[in-house]
């Protein structure tokens, strides 16, 4: 992984500028989140301190500092989506999965999160399932999506 990060860093004039792609690589390698050792690895690869890497990662919403489930369901609750029923979609997910936003199901299968605008305002409600957009999603589509994830597991 350190070599992979260094290859990415070569595309930047300064290695430190590669911190975001580096953290993303590390997050993929560590099962979707960034444990403390991930910051040590990224720091070693880019010649930065782990503290600096963590400072950057903790600023951005798409880096996870706590373990996540095998699947990630992210739901936009900003204005456009809210106007077409994001709240109902969220409640449907909560009911179906038995968790609140930010939590992971007990079996470790799915993490539910609310996010800010994902840029699909014309097709709300936007739900991002494992980094792929589903749009528009209505409350009645939710059981199907959850079943799909359980089947894939």
């Amino acid at each position: 992984m350190i070599d992979e990060i260094r290859r990415v860093a070569e595309q930047y004039p300064v290695a430190r500028s590669a911190i975001l792609p580096a953290l993303r690589i590390a997050q993929e390698r560590h099962g979707g989140w960034l444990p403390p050792e991930a910051f040590e690895e990224v720091g070693e690869a880019l010649d930065l301190t782990p503290a600096y890497c963590k400072a950057v990662a903790s600023f951005y919403d798409m880096f996870h500092l706590e373990p996540v489930g095998r699947h990630l369901v992210e739901l936009c609750t900003n204005v456009s989506c809210a106007l077409v029923g994001a709240q109902q979609v969220l409640e449907a997910f909560e009911e179906e999965l038995g968790v609140r936003p930010g939590e992971t199901t007990e079996d470790g299968a799915v993490t539910l999160r609310t996010i800010e605008c994902a840029g699909g305002c014309g097709w709300g409600t936007v739900v991002v399932v494992d980094h792929r957009y589903r749009e528009p999603v209505r409350a009645e589509d939710v059981p199907g999506i959850v079943q799909e994830l359980r089947d894939a597991d």
């Binding site: 403390p36 910051f39 301190t49 782990p50 503290a51 600096y52 963590k54 400072a55 903790s58 600023f59």
Partner: peptide, 27 residues
């Protein structure tokens, strides 16, 4: 820490109102 001593040990984590000064983990 960043621009004088250049040790990079003391940083601000999180964002906005949640920002806080920290070192890495319990180091």
């Amino acid at each position: 820490s960043e621009s004088v001593a250049e040790d990079g040990e003391l940083v601000a984590v999180n964002r906005g109102a949640q920002s806080m000064i920290a070192t890495f983990e319990d180091e």
